[in-house]
Simulated assay, not measured.
Amino acid sequence: MTLLKPAAAMTLLAVSCLTIMVGCVIVPGLSEIAARLGVSHLANWLVTLPALGVVLAGPFAGRAIDRYGAYPMLLVGLFCYGGLGVAGAWLPGAPLQIIDRVLLGCFTAVVMSAGTSLIASFYQAEARLKMMARQGMAIELGGVVFLFIGGILASLSWRYPYALYLFSWLLLALVVILIPSPQQQIATETRDEGATNSDRALRPVLLAAICSMMCFFTAIIMLPQRFAALGVNAAHIGYFLSFVSLVAVLAAALMPHVAMQFGPYPTLIMAFVCYMLAHLEFAAAPDMLLCLPGGILLGMGFGLSVPLVNHMTVETSQPHERGRQLARLSMAIFAGQFLAAFMAYIPGQVAMTFIAAAILAVMNIVALRKFAVVRN
């Protein structure tokens, strides 16, 4: 199978960045943006509502990709993503903002699933695993870059961060120019009528995706509160979270080597061991400096798990159902992100939330071990 040229591959990796960009571009100026739009009471929901849209639209996005193809659906998704994203700067009032953010999430599901499906169409075996790892690196780097640029733009005007959503229109043009017709590339992928039921086989993968995002985003949500209580200023909190993202990038780069040596399920177990140890350390560490080893473990947990569940979903799915299964994975990933917000309501001090996340990681380790034994 012919691989994409470097410029085309970079375009698909840039498309992957849009999944994390959907919420993070407005985070640096969130308070002023919410106030200007008259939705101060819904400030946090402006960030999380797209995740709800992904969960709601996932099944429809998957069916559309399987029926019409990943390539045309990616073009539709990129166009609507940019239009709905930038429109948010001009829609006052809660009802319009809620509708806009949920619809933005719906087309994020299309972009995420169609982009990964195209990667799966152009790459196979070890090359596909490495490309999935690069996709995970791109997502994390995108978070760092777009948060940085969003902060600069927010300092100039509260509307300017919304212009970043138009990056999807640039990618739309690049996809049309650089990505060849997928029909010419996927002819070797045939439907295997005797394949096992991928719905059942993917259950532990989807569970791992949900739990991974819950473990990761519980820390991302709760650490700023923990550090603020310790007297750490906002700048240093931002440095710490950026450090975690960079560790995740490095871990994603190492993931193909680890997965090929130990296997996918042992690698996922390693990721959740990292999550468990990270949250236990966050619960016990008395200051930010002693949280650094936990930050390294947290980034390793993300980098070893999220790109891998993408690859496992593609490998387990038949080509004719890949869009549906990738959409289910998108739903699982964003559902985990959405559910992490509710971890903050666990009674007790902040340390209890970290302990609860560590328990969640242990439960997933047990589940993955049992499934790995059954598979063997």
Rank of each mutant, 00 (worst) to 15 (best):
L4F: 08
K5C: 00
V15I: 12
I20F: 09
G23W: 03
S31T: 15
E32P: 01
A35S: 13
V39I: 12
H41K: 10
A43E: 12
W45K: 02
L49P: 07
L49I: 07
A51I: 03
A51W: 02
L56K: 09
A57H: 03
I65S: 08
A70V: 08
L75E: 12
V76E: 01
V76D: 01
L78Q: 03
F79S: 12
C80L: 15
C80E: 01
Y81I: 02
L84N: 01
A87T: 08
W90M: 10
A94N: 01
L96F: 10
I99Y: 00
V102C: 05
L104H: 11
F107H: 03
A109E: 08
V110R: 06
S113F: 04
A114R: 09
A120N: 05
Y123E: 10
R128E: 10
L129Q: 15
K130G: 02
A133R: 10
G136H: 12
I139Y: 00
L141E: 01
F146Y: 13
F146W: 08
L156T: 10
W158T: 09
R159V: 10
Y162V: 07
Y162K: 07
L164P: 08
F167E: 01
F167S: 09
A173T: 01
I177G: 00
L178T: 09
P182K: 03
A187Q: 15
R191N: 09
E193W: 11
S198T: 06
D199T: 11
L207K: 00
A208S: 14
C211A: 14
C211P: 00
S212F: 04
M214Q: 07
F227V: 02
L230D: 10
V232T: 12
N233M: 01
G238K: 07
Y239V: 13
Y239A: 12
L241Y: 05
S242E: 04
S242P: 02
V244I: 15
L246N: 04
L246F: 15
L246P: 03
A251Y: 05
A252V: 06
A253L: 12
L254E: 03
H257C: 01
H257W: 11
G263M: 07
P264Q: 11
Y265Q: 04
M270P: 00
V273C: 13
V273H: 01
C274E: 03
Y275E: 08
Y275P: 06
M276Y: 03
M276T: 14
F282M: 13
A283D: 06
A285H: 06
A285I: 06
C291V: 06
C291P: 00
G299C: 09
M300H: 06
H311L: 11
T313S: 10
V314P: 01
E315H: 06
T316F: 02
S317R: 05
P319W: 05
R322N: 10
G323L: 08
G323S: 09
G323Y: 09
M331W: 01
M331Q: 15
M331N: 08
A335P: 05
A335Q: 07
Q337P: 02
L339P: 09
A344C: 03
G348C: 11
G348W: 11
A361S: 15
V362L: 15
V366T: 06
R369N: 05
R369M: 12
